[in-house]
């Protein structure tokens, strides 16, 4: 809809680029008292996408929340993207989201119609996902924030953590990279409308289809590539799995326009934070240009799923995935732990 407000002008940083650095969070939570519970399969200590708590032998509860400032000016689209992004963490655990709560913060002077459009976007994506929004909480604040707290279910034996990758696995990424760079360049008016439309569609696309395909195969590990970028999330998967992850740079899909924009320095602060967090674990073998590396550290809003599975499964899964997620590609493989957590080739 047409609106007086330019939503992105109200935000100091955009989308998942607003995420606090991974290293910062780990240090903050050190030493806090928490209860131990054998039913808690995945908790905060695992740096995973969502928590998983076993209810009975058929069901485990998956919980997650995600919210961010506007990444686009259209409030309906912003709502759609924020909701798709929030539900993605449940898909990344192999689960199905079921219930959600709105988390909303809006400036007091924002038009009611624009606020309603944000919510309509969220409800639209929740409906598409088969999720019921049962309530939420709204406050006034300087910058708009929207997202969901999501609950879903997964079979306790089919939980996909980011710590299950095994030597011999291949890696598949379901959406191309470059979102953070392109949305930063867009703030400078450097991106043509057809390119923007393409990345908006991508960000609003649920990871449900990729998850539904993936669960038909023997997937060992999965995470969604969001605020920490491909290399930040790969770093967590490598450490969690005790393996080395090899990224075959030439195979990694990205939006071609993002490459030029990275060369020209339209790189969000989050990409530098991600580099600072993961770079010590990354060994670069051969020629991988700085701009390509920047895209690999680029924070993705509502990014794709990164999956690890045996090679024969991977080839078939990729074929099936390309129907549901045309940008999907095989981007690397997993070996026993070598000299570095990640090898960029």
């Amino acid at each position: 809809m047409e609106t007086e407000v330019k939503l992105t002008k109200l935000a100091s940083c955009a989308g998942c680029g607003a995420k606090v650095g991974a290293g910062t969070l780990v240090r903050m939570l050190e030493g806090f008292r928490t209860h131990q519970d054998p039913r808690l399969l995945v908790g905060y200590d695992k740096s995973d996408d969502a928590s998983v708590y076993v209810l009975d032998d058929q069901r485990a509860l998956v919980q997650t929340t995600d919210f961010f400032p506007p990444i686009v000016d259209d409030p309906f689209l912003y709502g759609q993207i924020a909701a798709a992004n929030a539900m993605s963490d449940v898909y990344a655990m192999g689960g199905e989201p079921k219930l959600a709560l709105n988390i909303l913060c809006v400036p007091e002077k924002m038009e009611a119609a624009a606020v309603q459009e944000i919510l309509r976007g969220g409800y639209d994506k929740a409906y598409e996902a088969g999720v019921i929004i049962t309530g939420g909480h709204t406050i006034h604040g300087a910058e708009p924030i929207y997202g969901l707290a999501v609950s879903g279910f997964v079979h306790p034996k089919k939980v996909l953590t980011n710590g299950g990758a095994r030597p011999g696995d291949v890696l598949i990424l379901s959406k191309p990279l470059g979102i953070g760079v392109l949305t930063t360049a867009a703030k400078a008016g450097m991106v043509e409308q057809p390119v923007l439309d393409r990345i908006y569609r991508q960000m609003a696309a649920l990871n449900k289809a990729a998850r539904d395909v993936m669960t038909g195969y023997e997937v060992h590990s999965c995470t969604d590539v969001t605020g920490f970028g491909l290399l930040g999330h790969s770093f967590e998967m490598a450490q969690g799995s005790g393996c080395t992850i090899h990224i075959q740079s030439a195979q990694v899909p990205f939006h071609p326009e993002a490459y030029l924009m990275a060369q020209m320095g339209f790189i969000p602060a989050g990409a530098y934070r991600n580099r600072g967090y993961a770079e010590a674990g990354v060994a670069v073998r051969g020629q991988v240009s700085r701009a390509v590396q920047d895209l690999f550290y680029d924070p993705q809003t509502s990014g794709g799923l990164l999956m690890a599975m045996p090679e024969d499964q991977g080839l078939e899964c990729l074929k099936a995935l390309q129907q549901a997620a045309p940008g999907a590609a095989m981007i690397g493989y997993v070996t026993q732990r070598g000299d570095s957590w990640i090898c960029l080739e």
């Binding site: 320095g265 790189i267 602060a269």
Partner: peptide, 12 residues
């Protein structure tokens, strides 16, 4: 961040 981004633009 601005130092790095300005450097990239100028070099480009």
């Amino acid at each position: 961040v601005s130092r790095e981004n300005v450097t990239r633009y100028a070099q480009h």
